[in-house]
Amino acid sequence: MLELTAVRVAFPIAGRLVPVVRDVDLSVRPGELLALVGESGCGKSTIARTVVRLERPIAGTVSLDGADVHALRGDALRAYRQAVQMVFQDPFQSLSPRQTVARALAEPLHIHRIGSWAARRRRVAELLELVELDPGLAGRRPRELSGGQRQRVAIARALAVRPRLLICDEPVTALDAPVQATVLNLIRDLVDRLGLGCLFIAHDLAVVRQLADRVAVMYRGRIVESAPTLRLMDAARHPYTQALLAAVPRLDADPSPAPTLRGEMPGPLASIDGCAFNPRCPQAFDRCEAERPQMIVGPCPDESVACHRQNQELA
């Protein structure tokens, strides 16, 4: 349903247009939960924002069911706004501090002029039930709610207009560990129950195993590996994916805090020849600095990786 083709998004930084998302291909199918994983600053949120038209690509297209999202006007745009909704990272910032839960949930219905007054009230009650919130909370304001409750409200608000595609931008990062689990269960349930497509953005791979159908790993604006969840988790091929997996704190393993990856991802202004990961890559060799690895699909059709080591082995 959602298809990104060679999408490139750039921002003016220090007086020039710097690409932060570079030639990204991505697709989400109906009923599928695709996790997009990478360190902060790698361009995940920009992709999400481009899909919901908060940013515009300078090249490439985003399309929903074949229609170019950034060319939509009038009624088609209205329909798109209902079809695609987003849940933001920090529910405290994405909800109005002055709106009660009931008003926040009714807001999208007002905006799209859906239903009568009574129908809206019924829908609000329905939404609260959908996200497993006590109906007694309807009159509360965000500051009177816990983090988990707030994020449930934000999810309910996104679902009010019955979207087909849900974009979740690190929806649990701002929450306590035990609360994260409950919100993740809710998201997975909703995706299954309502048959939604879901683009789920995360900065670590810890939660992805149980949650996602497919995973795409991103580094400095590019997808570097994508595969069905189990394949990716159990046999990661890209050195960056391997490093992300090793960084997850595990209870069973030897509790040594040895960092798996040195340094930080260079900012968007730095120019790196060849593979963007080569300054940090433990497996880099001479070719990595000379030439950028191409994305190679295979061995299965929904697996792909961009790394010279892998390409060597496949060749």
Binding site: R81, F88, I111, R157
Partner: peptide, 12 residues
Amino acid sequence: SAYFDALQVLGA
């Protein structure tokens, strides 16, 4: 703000 973004995504 994220709040403004959220409103836009909702179509306000």
